[in-house]
Design a binder for these strands. Structure first.
Lengths: 149, 149
DNA sequence: TATTGTTATACTCTATAACTATA
DNA sequence: TATAGTTATAGAGTATAACAATA
């Protein structure tokens, strides 16, 4: 429908712009954006296999192997075996990983607070109202792989 | 205030998750996320200097020099001199660059359409309503550099 | 002196291809 | 034969430091 098509396009453009916002909010000398997103996934959805994680984050399986090795080396994640299927490696977040994410989120929340305070109240309210939907949107994307024609 | 603090935190978490959504929606064998965001900025705000662009995108000045060189090599951007201040290099987007962005946005809009169709109408409406505010938020971030304690 | 931009260098991150182990 | 994961290698991308040119 035309109304939907218009907001699809606007949303596509909006997502592009969010990239620079997200980069700007990332603490410079810290873990990568993908690493942070992966830790967030591990924090929310418990231990996961490498392939599963790779699919959710939109990286290749070897890429996830390397990322997990990096995180393990930093003490932020931990590998363990799967009881039933010995091919599977389960990856979980450590206490240090949780702490890092908590600190990072607190810092971001502060920075966002400063920006949000400069927005009209209408805009702030609209963003707050849209958050649950945005969360469900990202969950959908994690579940159903996107087609790349 | 407490209500604001809660949504700051939720927004901080939401932005984290958007990283994987954005990556997933990016066509695999195309330009980088930063390159796309930079072209979007050039498309919207006309020719800009290297330093200005670097600040807006949250990368270093040498990083932007290299990115612009890459874009120029691909025929997507073009350097030109500044009439008054000969230190300045103005960077503009080419017709090919505009075309690439248009194609990319159309593809994203399609993909988003498929995802949005699976969301409850309430969520879709809320996201559409929040878009202008999100756009203003990213503009604020581009204007006022964020403090990294 | 301050500002704009480039070059040189090194490191992080990610992908593709080839391989091992288990089902 | 199919699936889960790793290793090897190469390339893209970005940062820091040092430099050149203009204001």
């Amino acid at each position: 429908m035309s109304a939907t098509a218009v907001s699809d396009r606007a949303l596509a453009i909006g997502l592009e712009r969010l990239v620079s916002l997200i980069r700007r909010l990332a603490p410079p000398s810290s873990i990568s954006l993908t690493a942070a997103s992966t830790l967030a996934t591990l924090m929310a959805d418990g231990p996961l296999g490498i392939s599963d994680l790779a699919a959710r984050e939109g990286v290749t399986q070897p890429g996830m192997t390397q990322l997990v090795s990096r995180l393990e080396g930093q003490g932020l994640a931990r590998r363990s075996g799967h009881a039933a299927d010995r091919r599977v490696v389960l990856v979980g977040i450590t206490a240090a990983g949780r702490q890092l994410m908590a600190d990072r989120r607190a810092l971001r929340a502060e920075q966002l607070s400063l920006l949000l305070d400069q927005l009209p109240a209408d805009d702030r309210d609209a963003i707050a109202t849209a958050l649950p939907g945005l969360t469900r949107l990202t969950e959908l994307a994690a579940t159903e792989p996107v087609q790349h024609a």
